[in-house]
Computed example of a mutant assay.
Amino acid sequence: MNQRVAIITGGSRGIGRETALRLARDGFAIVVGYANKQDEADGVVKEITTYGGQAVAGKADVADEKAVAALFDTASAAFGGVDVVVHAAGRLVKSTIADLDLADLDDLHRTNIRGTFVVAQQAARRVRDGGSVITFSTSIVGLALPMYGAYSASKGAVEAMTMILARELRGRNITVNAVAPGPVATDLFLDSNDEQTVAKLAAQPPLERLGTPADIAEVVAFLAGPGHWVNGQVIRANGGIV
């Protein structure tokens, strides 16, 4: 009856996957949300359950309100409710503003803005009092790097929604925060950048390395846990990039 339950969108790969494993180690029952990679989501579930944890997978397009509601239904049916929502699903498009195909802009905003809003809406309705909602932004919002205009704009919207939701949930003891990673060595990041770019980005932080999914998962685990007074904040987990 006292077990806490976490939904993690984008939980089949990268930071989402590592977060699912990390929260499972803290005793959470995990709902691994995924869009297309069922085999990878099932792999996360298997890894958690092999070591005695509890987990199920659920497919959901985060921009589809019915699919997201069904994901929350899965959590309720399997584990009795939802205490923590980690919205790690997102989309990245790199282009100059001048050259961006507006169809790509629409797809980006559908996932990152509408998707975040839909997940936040269900979280506001269904997370139990005392829980946590954690969204994902990016440190690029502050760095204003070329080629990331559309992506950065979408994540700026995520930050705005996060701050407002924190205030709208007054009285329920629910914290709402955003994690804004710097460059993290996920497969997606490494596959979409050449070696020179990876080396340049790794040299930027004073810690002189890329982040790892485990680094970010530790930040999420802190925000998902009890006993802190962090609310309505954007945590820039980037190794010290100004």
Rank of each mutant, 00 (worst) to 15 (best):
V234C: 06
A202S: 13
N112A: 13
D106G: 10
G43E: 06
Q204P: 01
R125T: 08
V62R: 00
A77L: 09
S12F: 00
N238P: 01
V93M: 04
I216W: 03
N193S: 10
A77E: 15
T162S: 14
P146T: 12
T111D: 05
V68G: 07
V85M: 08
P213K: 07
D101N: 15
G211N: 05
A144S: 13
R172G: 04
A78H: 04
A6I: 06
T74N: 10
V32A: 05
Y51R: 14
A221G: 12
Q3V: 12
G80Y: 07
S95W: 02
Q3W: 07
I7Y: 01
E159R: 07
P146V: 06
L188P: 02
G149I: 06
V119I: 12
V133D: 01
G90R: 01
E47H: 09
V141I: 15
L188W: 10
R114M: 13
R170F: 07
A24S: 14
D99L: 13
I241D: 03
L145Q: 12
T186D: 08
A55Y: 00
R91L: 14
I97A: 15
A78T: 06
R4I: 05
A78D: 02
R170A: 15
S76I: 12
V119F: 03
E47G: 09
V31Q: 00
T212D: 08
N2I: 05
T186C: 06
F28K: 00
R25S: 11
R17L: 12
A89T: 05
